[in-house]
Structure formats: structure tokens, C-alpha cells
Amino acid sequence: MNRRKQMAWLGWVSVLLVLSGCSSTQGSKQVSGGEDVPLATLAVPQQISYQSELALAKLGQMLSSPDLNPDQRAELFYERGVMFDRVGLRTMARIDFSRALRERPDFAEAYNFIGVYLTQQQSFDEAYEAFDSALELAPDYDYAYLNRGIALYYGKRPAMAVQDLSEFYRRRPEDPYRVLWLYMAERNVNADRALQDLQRRYKQHAGNEWGWNIVGVVAGEQAESDFFQMVAQQSESNKELAERLCEAYFYLGKVYLAQGQVKRAASYFKLSMASNIYDFIEYRYAMLELGLLDPSLEKADDDEVM
């Protein structure tokens, strides 16, 4: 482990100890200022699986075949890019998505992934162009609306972000994550009305899907401490727990950031990333949020890529 990664790991461990009191059980403790902070619910960080490594090796072998036509090569580059993305190798993934586009310039899904990476590095104008290309090629591609809306959100174009995220929500209003992203965009336009709309959508659409529990906490309909206790008790595997915590800590970090509790928000973003669920949208933007709070973290990450 190099020194930078070692220091980053030690920093995350410090956050975990502060929030958990050296314990992974649910509870609460008093901190300075009398704020009641729930102890962190933790999962073992996910590791790259044997199956993922094997899939990457097989895709590499298939790509070495001289008998592939351009469409076949494009599909294989795309599939390997998705696999690289899943294990956190974003530079390798981006290279493969670019190769897929060279083989097949009308590959909407590859444009979408390229746009996500451009958003993460805050190259917003280029990201918009990538998502525009995806939607020109596939007007019904839901997730291009989501990802362009997120790019507009981070690019400080809140009204346009609301338009895209409203379209994304309209296509499946029973999806809790569509409700959450629309709320975050609307909050930058009118915070009070956004909360009212979030509470209305929660009461109107909430179902059994796991993500509605997060919406309930964000909307003030469920206590955070009860929520984390439920997560710990109801997750059926460590992987499921890690995935749920990756999501929950990100959205709650956004809540605390909006309230001006920057240190707590940063701690929650770090906890989201500690899951190692690399391909979750919450993991991706937890890193961006930390970079916005501390630009030196983003520069260190860029240096590592170089």
C-alpha cells in the first residue's frame, strides 16, 4: 500500500472510530455541543470477486480474436468497460468505452458512461455533450436523463437539472431514487417547496422497495437512529448491508450538508465510499462531494490516475 492510500485509509478509520465509538452496533453518544449522533452502522468493505477477475480475463481473450466485426468489438469493449467500472478501475473503463465508440459511433450507452466520468471530473460542458449524444441516439434512454440532470445539478444549473430529473421521475414515480434526486435538484430552486413535494411523493408512492426507507428519513417521516437499526437487522448479507449503507450515508450526507453540518456530511460521504460499491451512483458522487469540500482530495485522486 503506497503512502497516499495508507493515509487515506487511516483517515477513513478515524472517521469510523469517531462515529462508531469503536463499535459496529447501533446506538448513540453525546458529542461536544450536545448533539446526539447515532453510532455508525458498518459493513465489511466489498472486495473484487474471483468471478469479476475471471470475466475480465475472458473478455480480454475474446477481444484478441481477429474474426470480430466492429459491432462485436464495440459490444465487448463496452462489456469490459462495465466490468472495469464495477471493480473501480475507472480509467481502464473510460478507455474501453471510448474504444467502443470508435468501433460503433452510435453506441448510446457508451456515451452515457463517458458523460458520467466527465461529470465526476467536473468537465460539465463535455458531459452535457455526451448525454445529448446519448439522448439523440436513444430518446427513451431513461438513465441519460438522470445522469444529464445530475451533471446539470453539479454544474449549478438547477432549473435545467429539475427539468431532466422531473422527466426521469415522471417515467417511473414509484422509484424512490428518482424521488430523491428530483428533491435534491428542486431544493436548489425552492427548499421549502421541495421538502413539501418530497413528503407528498413519499405518501403517494412509498412501497416495499428498500429505497423508500431512505426517502422516509430524508422527508422527516422516520428517525435516523431507527432507520440504521432497521438496516442492520434486515440486511441478509454483508454485500446487501454494504450496498444499503453506501446509499444511505450518501443521501444523509447531502441532508447534513444542506443544514450546514459540513464535518458530519463529509464523514457520511467517506462512510459511503468505505463500502467499495464502486458502480453505485452514490459512491461516485460521494467522491465528487468530498472533492468539492476539499479540492486537495480531488487533486490527489487525479495525480494517482496520471
Rank of each mutant, 00 (worst) to 15 (best):
N208R: 13
L68V: 07
R148G: 13
I95A: 13
A191C: 01
N69P: 06
V215L: 05
L54Q: 15
K156N: 13
Y128H: 13
N69R: 06
S225Y: 05
A258C: 04
A74Y: 08
A74G: 08
Q229R: 14
A266P: 02
D71V: 12
T119R: 03
R201W: 07
L137R: 09
S20P: 07
R80P: 02
I114Q: 11
H205L: 03
K299H: 12
S237G: 02
R73N: 04
R178I: 02
S20M: 05
L137H: 03
Y251C: 07
Q30W: 13
A144E: 06
V31E: 12
G207P: 04
W210T: 06
L118R: 14
Y141I: 00
S14G: 10
W212A: 07
T41P: 00
A274C: 00
E247K: 09
V162Q: 10
Q121G: 06
Q222D: 11
S235F: 05
A93Y: 03
K263I: 12
R171E: 12
A265W: 01
S98Y: 07
Q204K: 15
L152P: 02
F113E: 13
R99C: 14
K254T: 05
S123D: 04
A274K: 03
A40R: 00
E103C: 07
P38Q: 08
M287Q: 12
Y256M: 01
L180S: 03
A127H: 03
T25Y: 06
L17E: 10
A55K: 15
F131S: 01
N208V: 09
Y256T: 01
A100M: 05
V218N: 00
G21V: 02
A258Q: 12
V116C: 06
L152Q: 15
R187V: 01
R148Y: 04
G291L: 06
F228T: 00
S123L: 14
K29Q: 13
L288I: 10
F269Y: 14
G216Q: 02
D85Y: 09
S272F: 00
V231W: 03
E240D: 11
E186Q: 15
G27C: 12
E304V: 08
G27S: 09
R264P: 08
V189A: 01
L137W: 03
G207R: 05
R102I: 12
Y202N: 08
M7Y: 05
R104V: 00
I150M: 12
I214M: 04
R148T: 02
T41R: 06
L152N: 06
D303L: 14
E247V: 04
S65H: 11
A8C: 04
V231M: 02
N69I: 11
L198M: 08
G88K: 00
M230D: 07
Q122E: 15
V215A: 08
D140F: 05
K263R: 14
V255F: 04
P173S: 05
L10H: 10
L182R: 10
V44R: 07
L56S: 05
Y145S: 09
D36W: 09
E304K: 11
I277S: 14
Q61A: 05
